[in-house]
């Protein structure tokens, strides 16, 4: 019994220690002073995590918008309320689906790649040699990736929303014959820029920070062997997915739960 409590305590300490380490890690890498060099490194990471994730995010967004319109139509048409299709598609995308699904896709596509890349740099002693040359790898390697993720995911989320709403338009208006004016009109009447678009963006910023943070920390903190890298990559996807879904509930409760 005492042994159980002991091992529980040890695990608790391990978790706390890892949290503390990752917090310090975030603080140290986040303050990297932007220089011309840093700007270029950031640009390269933007290409890596942003532009290269664009295809998967846009295709998923299109399909999710189309499915939403199809599902929504069959339900709304029973109430004779198919005019509200635009409202339904846009609100579900802006408030919920775009931030969450884009963050999950981002964790799978970019997060795991970041972990593997940094882990490989660690395993091949590139980080150590950088330190020996007198360059802080937190600033040189981690900070640009952190900032690129933080900027790229909200942009990807916007893309997801836009193409999802367009997908809803294709199915709802072009295929199922909802009146075009009411699709856009109902949407405009019910979507509030600050409340809906703004809160969705806030969610997306939070997810971006958390997913990128988890990804780079897992990469930086892993055991530098091939097994360690594959484990850390898995951990990145699992932890960031759970963190995104859990935080989504908390943020939704704060934003739309009427606690204000």
């Amino acid at each position: 019994m005492i042994g159980r409590i002991l091992s529980l305590g040890r695990r608790g300490c391990d978790v706390l220690e890892a949290l503390g380490r990752s917090g310090l890690f975030l603080a140290q890498s986040g303050v990297g002073i932007p220089s011309r060099e840093g700007w270029y490194l950031w640009l390269r990471q933007m290409h890596f995590v942003g532009v290269l994730s664009l295809a998967i995010v846009l295709v998923s967004g299109l399909f999710i918008g189309m499915v939403l319109a199809l599902q929504g139509y069959t339900i709304l048409v029973d109430f004779g309320a198919e005019q509200a299709l635009g409202q339904m598609v846009s609100l579900s995308l802006l408030r919920e689906l775009s931030p969450v699904v884009a963050a999950l896709l981002f964790a799978g596509r970019a997060g795991s790649a970041l972990t593997a890349e940094i882990g490989l740099m660690k395993a091949t002693e590139q980080l150590t040699s950088m330190e020996m040359i007198g360059v802080d790898p937190l600033r040189r390697v981690v900070a640009p990736r952190l900032w690129a993720g933080f900027v790229a995911l909200p942009l990807l989320t916007v893309g997801f929303s836009v193409i999802g709403i367009y997908g809803g338009y294709l199915v709802g208006v072009e295929w199922l014959g909802v009146f075009e004016g009411s699709y856009w009109g109902n949407m405009q009447a019910s979507v509030d820029f600050i409340e809906d678009v703004g809160n969705g963006m806030v969610k997306s910023l939070v997810f971006a920070l958390v997913v990128t943070w988890i990804a780079v920390f897992q990469g930086y903190d892993l055991v530098p062997t091939s097994e360690g890298i594959s484990r850390a990559t898995t951990r990145t996807v699992v932890y960031s997915s759970l963190a995104v879904l859990g935080l989504d509930f908390v943020l939704t409760a704060l934003m739309f739960g009427g606690f204000s």
Binding site: L120, M121, T124, E125, Q126, T128, S129, M130, E131, M132, I133, G134, D136
Partner: peptide, 19 residues
């Protein structure tokens, strides 16, 4: 320490070139 390291060079076992 980083200043001191400018006076040192280190050759790593794996080479550790930036890939």
């Amino acid at each position: 320490l980083f200043t001191l390291r400018r006076r040192m060079g280190m050759l790593f076992q794996s080479g550790a070139l930036f890939s």
